[in-house]
Amino acid sequence: MNIAFFLLPKREVVCLTPTTTLRQTLEKMEHHRYTAVPVLHEDGTYAGTITEGDLLWYFKNNSQVTFETAHRHSLSEVPLRLQHQSVRIDATMEDLLKLVQTQNFVAVVDDTDRFIGIVRRSEVIDYCAKLALKDAQAAR
């Protein structure tokens, strides 16, 4: 199975940049009800994934930053607790499965490291469940 089968293309993915303000980030995450969002450099390469936890810890550890001042601070200031890994579009399913175990989604990049979309964990689980059900029915 090719991982492109699972790809949600970039045009359908909410993405942020390191210059996105914390307020914009919070508002987008709240609006879309996301707990994690990919962050892309200006050239389209994958920079990492910002999570609610990253934001929470940043606000906790920087008492001068409040929701009222969040528009003055950018994502570039927020350390990412986890380094979410990306895969290339030609990666194997095994590579994808290793990452999807610990990430809600896996960023997918092309051969020039440009972000092209994501693979959601739920899509992979659904696919694997269908395969398991098909195998169970065939074994009967």
Rank of each mutant, 00 (worst) to 15 (best):
V124G: 03
L56C: 11
Q137L: 14
I116L: 00
V78T: 04
N62G: 08
T25D: 06
L22K: 01
T92L: 09
L80D: 01
N61R: 12
L99M: 12
A132R: 01
P9V: 15
D54Y: 08
K98L: 15
S122Y: 03
R72M: 09
L55Y: 05
A4E: 14
T92H: 11
L75H: 00
E52T: 14
I89S: 02
L99H: 11
M29G: 10
N62K: 11
L56D: 02
K60E: 14
K134H: 06
Y34K: 14
A4G: 08
K10S: 04
T112Y: 15
D126R: 15
V108Q: 10
L75R: 02
L133E: 15
T49L: 11
N61K: 13
F105W: 13
E94F: 05
V78K: 06
D113C: 08
T19M: 11
L8D: 09
R121F: 02
V106F: 12
Y34H: 13
D111W: 13
D135Y: 06
E123K: 15
A139Y: 04
I125F: 10
E12M: 13
R23H: 09
H31R: 15
L75K: 01
Q85G: 02
A107T: 07
V78W: 01
L56Y: 14
C128F: 10
F6K: 03
H41G: 05
G53N: 07
A132N: 02
C15T: 15
I116H: 05
D110C: 06
K134Y: 04
R23Y: 05
L80Q: 07
R121T: 06
K134M: 08
R121Y: 00
L55T: 09
L22A: 07
L133M: 04
V13M: 07
E42A: 13
D90K: 10
E123A: 15
A136W: 04
E12R: 15
D126F: 03
P18H: 06
Q137T: 14
S76I: 06
Y34S: 07
L97F: 12
Q101I: 02
A129T: 10
V124S: 01
Y127L: 01
G117N: 02
E42Q: 14
T49W: 04
T92S: 15
D54K: 13
R23F: 02
H84P: 09
P79L: 04
E77A: 09
D113Q: 13
E68R: 07
V109W: 05
I118E: 06
E123Y: 12
H71N: 06
C15G: 00
A4D: 13
Q103G: 14
Q137V: 14
F115M: 04
L40P: 03
F59W: 10
K10N: 03
F6S: 00
D43T: 06
A4S: 13
H71R: 02
T45V: 03
T19E: 13
K98C: 13
H84A: 11
